[in-house]
Design a binder for these strands. Sequence first.
DNA 1: ACCTGAACACCGTTCAAGT
DNA 2: ACCTGAACACCGTTCAAGT
Lengths: 193, 193
Amino acid sequence: MAQVRPMRADARRNYDRLLKVAAEAFAEHGENASLDDIAKRAGVGSGTLYRHFPTRQALLEAAYVDRIEALGTRADELAKELPPGEALAEWLYEVCVGTIQVRGMKALLGSAVADGSNLALTACGTHMKGATQRLVEAAQREGTLRQDIEPIEVLRLAHGVSTASELADGQGKSIRRYLSLLTNGLRPAAGSE
Amino acid sequence: MAQVRPMRADARRNYDRLLKVAAEAFAEHGENASLDDIAKRAGVGSGTLYRHFPTRQALLEAAYVDRIEALGTRADELAKELPPGEALAEWLYEVCVGTIQVRGMKALLGSAVADGSNLALTACGTHMKGATQRLVEAAQREGTLRQDIEPIEVLRLAHGVSTASELADGQGKSIRRYLSLLTNGLRPAAGSE
DNA sequence: ACCTGAACACCGTTCAAGT
DNA sequence: ACCTGAACACCGTTCAAGT
C-alpha cells in the first residue's frame, strides 16, 4: 500500500481520462469494447493505454473498482437495516441490477468469482468476497440460509441469476423473481432446523 | 419442408466437411472459434463457408442441430422411465452437462432461449422448447413444480446454472449441486398444495 | 452453380522515434 | 519518464475471376 512515486502530471491526466472513457465504453459495449477506440476517445496513443493497463482485464477492473467498493459499503448498510436473510437477498439484488445495467461489470464480477482467480490478483474479488462472507455468515447464524454453502458459491449463483435475467429481457425485470427462486432453494430443508 | 434441389456433389462434400470441422472447432474453442480457420481446416475458401452459412450463428446451429434433436428424444425417454419431477431434473442435468462439455453449445442454447429469438428462426429453439414444455407440464400436473413458471424460464434458469457451474470449475462438477438448489426453489411453497 | 483467394476493413499489440 | 503513431499480425467479410 506504499504510495509509490506520484505520476507526472500528463501521465496522471491520461490515466484519469482513460478510466473515465473506459467506464463509459465498457458500460455501453460490454467487456469487448474496442481498446483502440477507448484510446482515441481519451485522446491518447494506443501505446499509452497499454503502458497504464497491460491487459484488458486490468483496465476493466480499474474502471469499476470504485463501484465494487460501493457495493461493499452497501452490504454493511443493509446489514444494519435489515434482518440477515433479507439483507443478503437485497444486496444480491443490487449486485445483479448493477451487472445488468453496466454491461462490463458482469464480466468483471464473473472473472472475480471464477475458479482460477487468485484472491490477490483482484482487488474487486477481495471486496466482493468479504462483503458476501459477512452477509452469508450472518444469515447462516440466523438460520435462514443452508449451512453447507460457501459465500463464493452464493456469488456464482447470483451471477447465474443475472445471466438468466439477461436472457429473459434486455433489462433486469426478472431479477427479483429469479432471485427469489434462488433464495427459496437456499433455505434450510424443512426438517433440519 | 420441400426437398429443395439436391446439392451438387462438390457442394455437398464441402458442406459436410464444414459442419464436421465446425463442430470440432466450436467444441474446442467456443463460439468465437475463427471462421477462417474452420474454412482452412475444411479445405475450402472462406467464401464457400459464407455461401453455405451466412452468419456465425447459422453455422453454430447447423453444427449442433443433431445434438439438440438428441436432447429432445432423450426428454421423451426420461419421461417414460421416471416420475415427471425427476425426469425434468435429470434432463436438465444432461442439458447442462452438454453445454459445458461442448463449449459452443452453451452459446447456441443461450441464443435459442434469449428474448428476441423468433421461434421460427431456430430449429434448435423449437426442439428445446417442445421438450421442455412436455416435461414441465407433466411435473406441474404432478404437483412437484410451481404452477407459475413458464417452460422457457426453466431453460433460462438452467442456463444460469451452467454459467454458475462454469465459474466453479472448468468442468461440470457443481452442476448436480446447483441444479438441486434450483429444483428446491422451484418446488411449490409448502402450504400451497 | 459453385468455388477460390485476393482485397479491404478492423482490431490488438509492440516498439522505434520523439519530447 | 512518458507519449505517439506507424507497423505488424490476425480475423471477418466481400466479390471479381475462374471452373
